[in-house]
Design a binder for these strands. Structure first.
Lengths: 104, 104
DNA sequence: AAAATAGTTAAGCATTTACTTAAGTATTTG
DNA sequence: CAAATACTTAAGTAAATGCTTAACTATTTT
């Protein structure tokens, strides 16, 4: 299970594919339908999702059925959760001044 | 606040910088210290983090103090949370067969 | 005012990424 | 068995990414 999960979910198309798979397992063609993109492109995205374990595949006839496996998202959840204490802290502090990203 | 937050946290160096900032606000040089990378590289990463709002900066003398602002991580948390129902569902189903990513 | 410090901005470069089209592999159907 | 279907794999490409070094800006120190 190589590949980085943060990298895997960085691409909006890949996130949309995962979102789609929440409606249930689906063959590639059906999955690809809403995207303005070639089938190979989707196939490649699925490969990447598979490599980090976010999807699994199985064959049914000439179709490949892809299924969601959200378990690797735990790593993301865990990482984000480290910042929740901070969130509260900020909430308690109330509003603060927003600084720009590049003021000379 | 342009830029994609999923993209921003996709890079391991950037995540490490954020992790570091949990210990408190810091000037660039101090932040950069543990990384085997030039100062401009860190500065560029900070720029990207700033653009998605994950850090804010302020000047103190000739230093730029960077501070963590975890609020934008809420978007990530929200997205991931959509998959928690799924997690439970899988847990209840128990173990299932792991398929490979490329079996012919 | 000159030199040092802290950092950014600019320019260039190698790699990776996200596609594309074309060709190949299974499987099923006529 | 030939044609169609559902993909994947391969090869190529343009654009984005993550660095580098060199030059610039702002502030402080001497």
């Amino acid at each position: 299970m190589r590949g980085d999960i943060f990298q895997a979910i960085a691409d909006p198309t890949r996130r949309a594919i995962l979102d789609r798979l929440r409606d249930g397992e689906q063959p590639v063609k059906q999955l690809a339908e809403p995207f303005a993109m070639s089938l190979p492109a989707i196939s490649q995205h699925l490969q990447i999702l598979c490599e980090v374990g976010l999807v699994t595949q199985r064959r049914v006839g000439r179709q490949r059925i892809y299924q969601l496996n959200p378990e690797p998202l735990q790593e993301v959840k865990n990482w984000v959760s480290h910042y929740e204490f901070w969130q509260e802290k900020l909430d308690n502090l109330g509003k603060y001044l927003e600084e720009s990203c590049s003021e000379s």
